[in-house]
């Protein structure tokens, strides 16, 4: 059903807000930027308006980094960093104690964490009382892809939680962009990881 808002169906978040905003917290090299851009390109397929951009700090492998995504049914004018996210995705659980991932995250909003811990343990670590969705994205990617690629797997979880874009569009975009780069076999494995994470809720 088409609504004025992008996410009336999901978590009942700030319904006066017409732009859905995501912050990915990760370490350089974990593919947060790739995940953000995949999401943005999939939203484009649905004729939505998007922005995807990293927090412009020094880029070093292993250093904490942030990347932002905005999705809207209307043109997006702002160029400020995302300060009031609807969903926060944490690709590296070692960041949990060091970053302020819960800043401006309300209790009816969501935090998705790549971790082997359960919901209660994440809650204790972060103090976040809202919706926590833990997923062992690294473990899943090791199992399915054979490599630690938590970014694609966690995307599946994000789609399930937020319904921000359709799974099939992310899959299509991934196939279009990556078959030439990483080959058909690895592409399909990554897609399987996205689908498995999507179904794991």
């Amino acid at each position: 059903m088409e609504t004025d808002f992008l996410y009336g169906i999901i978590l009942g978040m700030k319904l006066d807000k017409k732009i859905f905003e995501i912050i990915f917290h990760a370490r350089g090299g974990q593919g947060a930027k790739t995940a953000a851009e995949l999401l943005a390109q999939a939203a484009l397929k649905e004729e939505k308006f998007i922005q995807a951009f990293p927090d412009f700090g020094p880029e070093r492998t292993g250093a904490p980094m942030k990347t932002f995504v905005r999705v809207s049914n209307e043109p997006i004018k702002t160029h400020e960093p995302v300060v009031d996210p609807d969903v926060v995705v944490i690709l590296d659980e070692t960041l949990l104690g060091t970053i302020d991932a819960t800043k401006n995250l309300d209790e009816n909003e969501a935090m998705i964490v790549n971790t082997t811990s359960n919901r209660e343990m994440v809650k204790q670590k972060t103090g976040f009382v809202g919706n926590i969705y833990p997923i062992d994205a690294t473990g899943l990617s090791m199992e399915v892809i054979g490599e630690p690629r938590p970014n694609t797997a966690i995307l599946g979880k994000l789609l399930k939680v937020s319904e921000i874009v359709k799974l099939e569009n992310v899959v299509d975009v991934f196939r279009e962009k990556y078959t030439g780069k990483i080959g058909a076999e690895k592409t399909e494995k990554n897609i399987l990881a996205i689908e498995k994470a999507y179904d794991s809720l």
Partner: peptide, 12 residues
């Protein structure tokens, strides 16, 4: 264009 804000941001 603005360095980073525009040069490195994906937009429609």
């Amino acid at each position: 264009m603005d360095g980073f804000q525009t040069s490195h941001s994906v937009e429609n």
